[in-house]
């Protein structure tokens, strides 16, 4: 009797877990698989993928989401953050970066809003240089300093000068973007999912 009861108990325990798992991940997984990527959605290029890896490494996800909500659910639409995102927008994302926090704005369509590479570079070097009052951390290790030369010298060295406003730059130095900074920015300026989607996908509302 005792063994029967014990084994029933364990079965029940396993059942509840598996039911939840099947219901919440496998079935939607099968359903979502039917959805093709939107034709305008391109796979990431190598540089963008490297930038994405830096986005993951520096934990941007803890302050930025990448999902836009429909009209009637928050102000995403009114703020012009782009049409509601759909599963087809994420087919190339691994790991996913949907995020659950908006200490900073949603970045799913940041490229449509802010296509300027220089802006992003300055912002990453010191967020307060572009956005007074920001609490975003600076990422100085994505940049290096160099002496002040003429433009041609940097061009010859293959260095990208970041036009950091004077009061935010170290005195007598020029800020140069490293490859990592350029990769990250390449990723950011690729984040544009404002293309129109042809099929109506089962989404909220």
């Amino acid at each position: 009797m005792m063994y029967i009861r014990a084994s029933i108990f364990f079965l029940g325990v396993l059942a509840t877990l598996f039911l939840g798992w099947a219901g919440l991940t496998m079935i939607p997984g099968l359903q979502i698989r039917e959805i093709k990527p939107a034709s305008a959605l391109k796979p990431y290029k190598d540089q963008q993928l490297r930038g994405r890896a830096i986005y993951i490494r520096e934990g941007c996800i803890y302050c930025h989401s990448q999902q836009t909500r429909p009209e009637g659910f928050g102000a995403d639409q009114k703020r012009g953050w782009g049409r509601p995102s759909v599963p087809g927008d994420y087919v190339y994302d691994k790991p996913h970066l949907l995020g659950t926090m908006r200490t900073g704005p949603d970045l799913f369509n940041i490229a449509a809003r802010q296509p300027s590479e220089d802006w992003h570079l300055i912002h990453l070097y010191d967020p307060r240089a572009t956005s007074p009052g920001s609490i975003m951390p600076p990422y100085p290790w994505l940049f290096k300093e160099d002496e002040v030369f003429s433009k041609e010298v940097y061009a010859a060295k293959g260095e990208r000068v970041v036009p950091v406003p004077e009061e935010f730059a170290p005195e007598g130095k020029v800020i140069i973007a490293t490859h990592e900074a350029l990769d990250l920015v390449a990723y950011l300026v690729s984040l544009n999912h404002t293309y129109s989607i042809e099929q109506k996908v089962n989404n909220n509302e």
Binding site: V13, G23, T100, N202
Partner: peptide
């Protein structure tokens, strides 16, 4: 045990997932 297993997706409310989920 039965209900708590199903809670997690409320973290994605408003997100790009099927409504029923």
């Amino acid at each position: 045990a039965l209900f708590y297993n199903w809670n997690g997706i409320h973290h994605l409310v408003g997100g790009p997932l099927p409504t029923w989920l």
